[in-house]
Amino acid sequence: PEPKYLGREDVRNCSTSPERLPVTAVNTTMRLAALRQQMETWNLSAYIIPDTDAHMSEYIGKPDKRREWISGFTGSAGTAVVTMGKAAVWTDSRYWTQAERQMDCNWELHKEVSISSIVAWILAEVPDGQNVGFDPFLFSVDSWKNYDQGFQDSSRHLLSVTTNLVDVAWGSERPPVPSQPIYALPKEFTGSTWQEKVSAVRSYMEHHAKTPTGVLLSALDETAWLFNLRSSDIPYNPFFYSYALLTNSSIRLFVNKSRFSLETLQYLNTNCTLPMCVQLEDYSQVRDSVKAYASGDVKILIGVSYTTYGVYEVIPKEKLVTDTYSPVMLIKAVKNSKEQALLKSSHVRDAVAVIQYLVWLEKNVPKGTVDEFSGAEYIDELRRNENFSSGPSFETISASGLNAALAHYSPTKELHRKLSSDEMYLVDSGGQYWDGTTDITRTVHWGTPTAFQKEAYTRVLMGNIDLSRLVFPAATSGRVIEAFARRALWEVGLNYGHGTGHGIGNFLCVHEWPVGFQYNNIAMAKGMFTSIEPGYYHDGEFGIRLEDVALVVEAKTKYPGDYLTFELVSFVPYDRNLIDVRLLSPEQLQYLNRYYQTIRENVGPELQRRQLLEEFAWLEQHTEPLSA
């Protein structure tokens, strides 16, 4: 089937004269002029603006949205480069249409994301001998190495400039850095105490082949997890800006001290300097403090994926021990039995909210009273009513018809589409609860789907089932098994342009690295949680995604061996109206019916306990066993 012609009035057209810009485009002319003025002052011919913050966060706070401010493009992934005459953004397929809607004609859009393509463009635009500037606190060691390698054989100089030039151009309009209180999670919501976690990391360091004396933690989920602390510096992520330097004899936490209550200071043992006392230092001191520590007889372990070049460059190379991920990332990836139980229980409550929403939609969409935005607001409200809720885990993706073809479309109060029984609707949403983070996607159709829509949906479901029921050897990397989620789509020439899953955990970020199915994810191990989320997007018509969270568990095999499989902990049935059972194999059908039985067992009693009888009846009906 050919993609439908969109009319494209919603996107910019820079080839006409005058250029045609949609209302959603941002005028960046003055912003670019202010940045170029700074570039001139610093003698830079190009300036690279990545999409992250000083902690390599995927979601960033308002003061860190530099790429968004300079380009107008609000997608969560994408790098901008500004030269004296040109400006360009590189982003992946999830955001191409969004970028065309939001950027004005000052900007080129490059539909790729590799650093090599960015470097190639800079080499073509910047003359020999000129400087290319970057903020070292916005580049991981890994990405700096890739850029550096790209420029090595050229005569352009990659220059680390610790003053952020976008911030200077942004000036007083730049939002302030957050200062909300940082609080300790009640112990019933944590898998271990912070002292136990510190001991585990120290033990890891002792057993490390290069015996580091200290580990520097830069990612925000590392400090939040290690100390069982949370705050709200970043939307949807309960984090606080911080670093930690954990050594064999001391613990230093770099954070604004005024954000702690007296009780939390006591919880952290901040009034001593013993090995189990947390010494607080100001956030801005991290570079100097690491430099001072590195002057001793020490070896500092860093995970290069999350440590920025800004901190890395002050550690002498002979005192560095580098791994891809810090020990905290690796230990955190495997949830202990208490953490698993907490996460599962948050998913039961979350399923209640999603089921309530689906029942509500079924009743109200035919009346024509629901739109994408009011729907998103309602499901967020349902989650907020759940115990231990701390709001959504990301901006709800509520997309009807052609809007669902944009994998990360979110409606606004001003711009949204009415839900209708005549088209498909995709809702991808999640909650932050004190016991767990959730993330689930369901796609539904309340009318008569086309044969192609049913086939595409069923094949996405087959991909989800094939990966979910897979039995594989322990310590297999996710990338090795990822194709199982795509096979049913591939065999008829369909595919999707995003990853197949991501780690998720206990009240941290919704995409909890390093678990997942990509080349830089760590090998699968018992106790990890990952999402499984194949999809299919038909530009201009509809989008499908079926996402569940799964726990990695031991598999029972006919012959003895160390094998793993997945156990779904998302408990919401798929849309029967869109499943073509004729396409399912007997094994897939059997798996699906067994999953539906699990949903009944886990969520049914909770619905009854709350007297949600309409929802209970709906669940019974939608989890009736399917037959070929």
Binding site: V113, S114, I115, D142, N146, Y519, N520, G535, R545
Partner: peptide, 24 residues
């Protein structure tokens, strides 16, 4: 929420370096 596909560039660079150092 769907994760984006990570660029393979650094892996290619790492593989190329590994092959080069092995050959030499």
């Amino acid at each position: 929420r769907a994760p984006h596909i990570i660029s393979w560039t650094s892996l290619w660079v790492a593989s190329a370096l590994a092959i080069l150092s092995w050959s030499s």
